[in-house]
Amino acid sequence: MSVTPLLEARGIDKRFGPVQVLKDVDFAVTPGEVTALVGDNGAGKSTLVKCISGIYPIDAGEFQFDGQPVTIHGPRDAAGLGIEVVYQDLALCDNLDIVQNMFLGREKRSGLVLDEPTMEQMAAETLAGLSVRTVKSLRQHVASLSGGQRQTVAIAKAVLWNSKLVILDEPTAALGVAQTAQVLELVRRLADKGLAVVLISHNMNDVFAVSDRIAALYLGQMVAQVKTTDVTHAQVVELITAGRSGDLGLPTEKIDSGVEYADTLTTPGAEQ
């Protein structure tokens, strides 16, 4: 790796009661690149994202951001660092309009009063900067938007804050073909603007279409972080389903011994 990673996670452990969801996970993302985070259901993708964004506290491990060690105690800490997450379920309020949603929780004010003109202008500029032309009015309720438009608003919300790292959780899962293309185009544009982008996806076509790097999780372990151009579809699928593929992934004996819940129950290093 020539560029220093923007965010580097080292040895992340996370357990929910007796279930260890993340085990000693290392993960690095580089600015200007789309890093695809892949893995089967329950592999720990969403949990890892929620740890990075401060929604879940981690049990062990450390984060480095821009080369500095950081602790993330909540969504506000993550936002303060410039980490924004676009969740699978979008996290938009249907009863608010586009501008209100984009500034939710971080409203611009002049004194006590909300500064609506400034917010509307910033929202318009952000959408224009992303070449988004699919919304008719910034003052329409989010409920009246299509799936692709909602996703666009959610992504625009994430980049509004000069964020450095944008994490997208299955942004195309509920979209049609044309809308998927639109959103992927937008994802690529984010990385081209110099942001670090993490794309969680189940769809191998999406992953190979936009990502520069692929990180594969298997049962809570990071089994490989490789360049997209160095692997094939089949290899990635193998990594997702079996945890290894040829030279990549976990060593054979480790899988055979069954690195699963029974084993992880006794894993030390979760005292925190």
Partner: peptide
């Protein structure tokens, strides 16, 4: 902002929580 947050919590509590 308080009023906006009241609407947000009423519209989608989880979204409001994630917005900090």
């Amino acid at each position: 902002a308080y009023g906006r947050h009241v609407y947000a919590v009423g519209g989608n509590r989880e979204a409001a929580r994630r917005a900090g």
